[in-house]
Computed example of a mutant assay.
Amino acid sequence: MANKLALVTGASSGIGFSLAKELGSRGYDLVICSAGARLEAAADTLRSTGSAVEAIQADLATREGIDELWNAVKASSRPLDIACINAGVGVGGLFYETDLDEELKMVDLNCTGTVHLTKHVIKSMLGQDGGKILFTASIAGEMVAPREAVYAATKAFVLSFAHSVRYELRDSNITVTALQPGPTNTDFFHRAGMDNTEVGSKGKSESEPDDVAHQGIEALLAGKDHVYAASGKTKLEGMLANVVPGSVKGSMHEKMAKPLDEK
């Protein structure tokens, strides 16, 4: 029997790479996508699991990039069993100081690209009468997040989108799961310009991407609506997210996200 097929975006490093590795170890063939230069190296590593891996280098912040990726998925002529819609970036800093173009590009990737790709995925899965979708949201999507205001807003969008689409599909054989990691030991904070912050220098060590991915895939395969991953602190923050006042959440996040040398 042929392996099932899984799609993972943002798979050249970090949580996306770990999601792909987790699925490869479970016997899935992979279509992986990233705009980064590390994609081919990631694909070579993933092939060591014994899975067939197709790597598509495309910018999913653009319509052309989404179309390029989806055309590759269609060209396989195989049912898409799992889609991990994970690609995303962050921008750190005070909103009135951050670069507008960087933030709009982030919105294009984290929100617009997610909607565009999901439209293709769901129509395909409805046509084949089944499938599983994992969205990488964030604990930040439930927080007041000074110095990551736009990033957190994009993740709140992804979280709301995932929950709403899940409800729409409740009578189908498609399940939708939101993965909500906290700070994770990846290069996310470096790329967001947040190395010189508490969360970017030591807070990210609370979770390893392999642990986040394992918990995410376990929740996906179990059909759960969401999972907080992977540290105990993240799970506690998730439980308290709708109880703690916004001013308290904002103060907590401000401490983690401001430069270490700022009073």
Score class of each variant (00 low, 15 high):
L220G: 05
Y28D: 02
L126S: 05
A72E: 11
L5T: 09
R191I: 11
N196Y: 06
Y167V: 15
D59I: 03
I122P: 00
W70P: 00
E208S: 11
A153L: 06
H226W: 10
D59N: 14
A35P: 04
E54H: 14
T112G: 01
G130I: 07
L260D: 04
K249N: 01
D81F: 03
K4V: 07
M256P: 03
T177H: 04
D225Y: 08
K263Q: 15
G16C: 03
E262K: 15
F188Q: 05
E254K: 14
A162M: 01
S205W: 14
G50I: 08
E198A: 15
V248P: 00
F95E: 09
G238F: 06
T9K: 07
R63M: 09
D210S: 13
A52G: 12
Q57Y: 02
K4D: 13
M125V: 00
E148I: 11
I85R: 02
A222W: 13
R147Y: 14
S48L: 12
H120L: 06
S231A: 11
K255Q: 14
G113A: 02
M1D: 08
H226Y: 14
V144Y: 04
G24P: 09
E102R: 12
E148Q: 13
A222P: 08
I82M: 07
E254R: 13
L109H: 05
D59F: 02
Q180R: 12
E142S: 14
H226R: 12
Y151G: 10
T49D: 09
L30K: 05
G10D: 02
K74S: 10
H190Y: 15
E142L: 14
R191V: 11
S251M: 10
Y151M: 10
T62H: 01
A230F: 06
L159P: 03
V121R: 02
E208W: 04
H190K: 15
T177R: 00
G141K: 04
L221N: 09
V115T: 13
S172L: 07
C111N: 11
A229R: 01
G216F: 00
